[in-house]
Simulated scan of single mutants.
Amino acid sequence: MDRYAVIGSPVSHSKSPFIHGRFAEATGQSMSYEALEIAPEALAERLAQLHAEGYRGFNVTLPHKLAVARLCGQVSERAQLAGAVNTLLRTEGGWQGDNSDGEGFVTDLRRNCGIGLAGKRVLVIGAGGAARGILQPLLGEKPAELVLSSRNPWKPEEIAEQFKPQGRITPRTHASLKGDLYDVIVNATSTGHQGFMPKLPGPLLAPGGACYDLSYGKAHEPFAAWARAQGAARIADGLGMLVEQAAVSFALWRGVRPETATVLAELRAA
């Protein structure tokens, strides 16, 4: 039986074993999937050991997404642009890195949320690794404008320059957003995990606009409250993105794309 796992620290909370277990059942795949706690200082040694033990692939969660990229023999273009790896595939000599977050993000928007991006003014709040992971496929959806905002100007400016070959990103600070309205606002910050939202100026959401959060669960609550105050017509969390990016990883490993609606419905019910 082929062996897979999610690696991180901490990792006991991960929903990935449930998700991939359901995917395997639905597609008739002979595979196991578990959660492996790996301390950052042991990462390189453990990846070599797990390769020797015959593991076929991994999902990668915090805090390993950046460090894993440096340990891969090959890294996909989208993972290079994201600056992070969340999926590992076994090769004869080591590990190949990929990033399924962006594809999972746009698939969830389109399939599960009914949020279109083409021709829309889109604001992404936050310029860290989570934002970088979604920018390439987001640009591929052809928004009328894509603005990337952070507290400090240098991060959005640096990222906008790097992504020029993929499309135009307008770098802004949070404070400079005052007076602008956007059709879709995406929260790519991690502040919800600390129970708050970044300080943003005045109304930012256009009438009928949608708000999407890459976080889910309790971490989604501060952004959801802010989105309601903005009068959002549609508010979505990142649980669907979690399932859809897992389906991308599964397809990379097994060559079959699993159906996601049933698994997402089960997670919502739970």
Rank of each mutant, 00 (worst) to 15 (best):
Y212G: 00
G128M: 09
I125V: 15
Q230M: 13
A210G: 12
G240F: 07
L181F: 06
P198G: 03
S215W: 01
A206E: 10
F223E: 06
K218H: 04
P165R: 00
A219Q: 08
A130C: 08
G128N: 11
F163N: 01
D213G: 12
A175F: 06
K155R: 15
K178R: 10
G133C: 08
I235W: 11
I185Q: 08
T191I: 02
G133Y: 07
T189E: 05
R228H: 03
H174D: 06
P201N: 02
I125H: 02
G209V: 13
A219N: 04
A225W: 03
V122C: 15
G126S: 02
R234A: 13
F196A: 10
A210M: 13
V147L: 09
H220V: 05
A206Q: 04
A130Q: 04
G209Y: 12
I134P: 01
K142Y: 03
Q194V: 05
G126L: 07
R151Y: 04
P201D: 11
W154Q: 15
A160H: 01
M197I: 11
A224G: 02
G217Q: 07
W226Q: 10
R234S: 11
L148P: 05
E161V: 12
P198S: 03
E141I: 08
H174V: 06
A206L: 06
Q230C: 14
K199T: 11
D183E: 15
L146M: 08
Y182W: 04
A229I: 05
P156L: 08
P207V: 07
P222W: 12
V147E: 06
R172V: 04
Q230I: 15
A175I: 11
E157N: 10
K155G: 05
A227K: 00
A160R: 00
S215K: 03
T170C: 01
T191M: 04
L177F: 07
L148Y: 03
G240V: 12
E157Q: 15
A224W: 02
T170W: 02
K164C: 06
R234Q: 10
D237Q: 04
K155D: 13
V186S: 09
A225S: 09
A160L: 07
T173S: 11
G140R: 01
A236T: 11
S215Q: 12
G240L: 10
G179W: 15
K164P: 02
G179N: 13
H193T: 06
Y212A: 06
P203V: 10
Q166I: 02
I125C: 12
G133M: 07
S149T: 12
G167N: 02
P207K: 00
L205A: 08
G126V: 04
P171R: 07
N187Q: 08
R172G: 00
V184A: 11
L214H: 01
D183T: 07
Q166M: 10
I185L: 14
G179L: 14
A130D: 08
P207Y: 00
A206C: 05
V147R: 00
K142E: 14
A224C: 06
Y182K: 00
K218W: 03
K164T: 13
G129Q: 05
Q166N: 01
V186Q: 09
C211I: 14
A188H: 02
